[in-house]
Design a binder for these strands. Structure first.
Lengths: 228, 228
DNA sequence: ACCTGAACACCGTTCAAGT
DNA sequence: ACCTGAACACCGTTCAAGT
């Protein structure tokens, strides 16, 4: 149905409801969630929104704007859903876990944040972390290093977990098969050269990214403010 | 000089020295270092190697193979240059700093590692970390979480620092101007809403990524095995 | 076996033209 | 003001043809 028989170019029905940056970003998030970063093409967006290229470019600057806008939207959602007025340790755990879960749910966010860190939405996150560490009585001259370290760890763990999630999605197999294959590959390594990796294998099947992440948060908290 | 006047297609002089996967990867690293991931096009590679498309595809599978191969090469270099037979704490610091410096020197490596974690070369890194943590008398049931956390932090901090480095390269300005602009932007934030971010501003100009990274490593070491 | 380069099927983005 | 879609300048990859 690309052309009509009369030779006049076919014309898609004009949208009745107006386009908006918000609608475009939300649609982009849908495409990103389904197919990852590479699935977000301008063409795919025009089709899903049944509109033209120019219409999109009227509301967003370019594809990059689309990606940062989508990322901001996700991060903002994390913060608005997390209470920070409880015990500082609990609040830091909740904040970290909120970002971690968001990145697991939207694996493309992790890579986006490593491309464009210090987006406005992440600034709110950093601010909250800083205040909570201050409330934990972290000495002032250690506060900035501690906050930066916390951000690096949370984003790093999120990105890594997201990468696993992406590979999981790419492999059409389920999680156990994927981990099993990894374990199998690692088992094939020379035991004398890779004793630790091989010891990890026996744990891998029961491995829970989220639990390991929380264990990491606790290591950080102990390191930064004595025993958690 | 696309065509010669006689209408016969111009033909580039045939390479005298043979192509090899190794030469291709090394050339790719050069392009990546100069222009980042987007600069690595197959066309750019053929030009720099004065060869054709098919020649490249004869030695590497595709662009992805090029990227992972280049990343492996860098990571392998880090490990071969780091001694791990000293005091475990010192060795962990050296190992972490080696990866951090490599990512700073080759910013594209950080994003690549977040796309393809657990490359063989990183396995060696993980193995070394696990053994060193064991040598630090980290209890066995905490060893795997600790090693994973360490990896996440090192990769996360590296990626973040690399993102800064990329922006620094994109902005043709120097580091002080860039940090000054960021500080200026942050200073404009509502002081009652962002007290911590604003307090960070005064530190930002004197900020040293490498020092903050080492401070983070020490937080981790304290958290994982008592006072460092 | 190794290499060449035209050709193909995509991209993001622009812009004259429509309402 | 908002939208359409042909056109442009790129991509990565393939493959018949050369040596």
């Amino acid at each position: 149905m690309a052309k009509n028989p009369a030779g006049r170019p076919a014309r898609a029905p004009r949208r009745t409801s107006g386009l908006s940056r918000d609608l475009i970003i939300r649609t982009a998030i849908g495409i990103l969630d389904e197919g990852g970063e590479s699935a977000l093409t301008i063409r795919a967006l025009t089709i899903r929104l049944s509109t033209g290229y120019g219409a999109l470019y009227h509301h967003v600057a370019d594809r990059n704007d689309l990606l940062t806008g989508a990322t901001d939207e996700i991060i903002t959602g994390v913060l608005s859903g997390t209470a920070t007025d409880t015990d500082p340790r609990a609040a830091l755990r909740a904040l970290a876990l909120g970002l971690f879960d968001a990145v697991e749910a939207h694996p493309w966010v992790g890579r986006e944040l490593s491309r464009e860190p210090w987006r406005p939405a992440l600034l709110d996150f950093y601010e909250a972390v800083g205040r909570l560490l201050d409330a934990l009585a972290v000495p002032e001259d250690a506060l900035f290093d501690a906050a930066g370290t916390f951000m690096s760890f949370v984003l790093g763990a999120g990105a890594q977990s997201a990468a696993n999630a992406s590979h999981l999605a790419a492999a059409t197999t389920d999680r156990d098969t994927f981990l099993g294959a990894t374990a199998g590959r690692w088992s094939g390594l020379d035991p004398s050269k890779y004793p630790f990796v091989r010891a990890t294998v026996t744990r891998l099947r029961a491995h829970d990214d989220r639990e390991q992440f929380l264990a990491g948060v606790d290591i950080f908290l102990r390191g930064v403010a004595g025993d958690a």
